[in-house]
Design a binder for these strands. Structure first.
Lengths: 204, 204
DNA sequence: TCCAACATGTAAACGGTTACATGATTAC
DNA sequence: GTAATCATGTAACCGTTTACATGTTGGA
């Protein structure tokens, strides 16, 4: 039972949030915790399964083996009262705002060391990915709204946070798309003058 | 010299980007790589100093000890041609877009498990931080623009990427502030009805 | 005299990623 | 049979964080 002021990781709390809505197997969690629109955390299964065993060892969750209709047996986990209490405490507790590290911006920052064509390709690729992501986010939010209405009046309180998260990601995606377009136009404008007087040369 | 296909970490490339502009000491880098507006990466000194020694061991950078005008001697690092070549290759190379993990959104997602007052306090605190951050970003960009003009026509090409990064962070900050305000109004609207019929109770 | 800023590190723990590994069931 | 999906794990590595550790210079 190893009781020495153990605390679940952020992933552990993310898992408990999902289990608070409904019991899930490790495999279910692995799918919900894949990098995807609509949930702000993700992890590999090699991290999920051990974390589940730890949560169970501390009685935050409980499992039972169930036969699956379409495959091998599944171990299904359910949130227990101590887990829900810990989750509520964590949610209400102090919040550390770790700033984001962005590899994209790290590349843009030194865009003068790279041919314009490469930067434009990068911006173009990122635009395509973000557009697709935005499309999916809008789809998800649209469906939720159709079923439950806007967050102010949604009958199911559990829906409010989910909708706000989607709205957040949608707003960020739109803002980023505008910036990508702006950056494209800046780089293109400079590339035009660069043709006459090339500013970037390889190191030697 | 340990030559077995070694590659600098992302931090290593961030350091080389900074050194590409000007030679810096570990202490300078520690300040530049603190979580701060205007640069998209950060690290602790316990990571910076070893990384510097590794970069030097592979001849990507070179150091020399210099007396400091206001303190102990400083070891100043300068980017070497192999380092600049590696940096350019990395900047132009394939780009993995790792999605962001957001502890803020993780809390909002289950906002129904927390009293409205706590969520409102969280939103308020985050708003204050973001406003201050936005103010600083705008200040930095304003200064850069005053000296160099807009990125399309800035004389110093090294300025373009920096300005675009600042514009990105400014756009994201504004978008997030709008969302924070929107979320506040949603939570307040629901808190008003919640008074009559409380939806959140502690687990037992 | 003491504090703040300058300056540079080491050691241990932790979280996360990558690679490896196994086996059941269903549909083609 | 064989591929895809279901289902669950282990081991090694690596980057990051936290804590510990040391010494200098200049100003209050």
């Amino acid at each position: 039972m190893m009781n020495q002021r153990w605390e679940p990781t952020t992933l552990g709390h993310a898992i408990m949030q999902l289990l608070q809505r409904a019991p899930l197997s490790g495999y279910d969690l692995k799918k919900r915790l894949a990098p995807s629109p609509g949930f702000a955390w993700y992890a590999q299964d090699s991290q999920i399964y051990p974390q589940l065993r730890q949560l169970e060892a501390h009685a935050y969750i409980a499992s039972e083996v169930q036969p699956s209709a379409i495959g091998p047996d599944r171990r299904v986990y359910a949130l227990q009262p101590p887990g829900e209490a810990a989750l509520r405490a964590w949610l209400a507790g102090p919040f550390e705002d770790t700033p984001a590290k962005s590899e994209l911006l790290l590349r843009i920052w030194s865009l003068d060391l790279v041919p314009s064509a490469v930067t434009l390709a990068l911006l173009h690729a990122k635009t395509a990915v973000t557009q697709e992501r935005l499309r999916q986010l809008e789809l998800l939010l649209g469906r939720l709204r159709m079923r439950q209405g806007p967050p102010e009046t949604a009958a199911d309180a559990r829906n409010v946070g989910v909708q706000l998260c989607l709205e957040h990601d949608i707003a960020q995606a739109r803002s980023q798309l505008a910036w990508l377009e702006r950056s494209r136009s800046v780089v293109e404008a400079r590339a035009a003058t660069e043709d006459a007087e090339p500013a970037t040369s390889a190191a030697g």
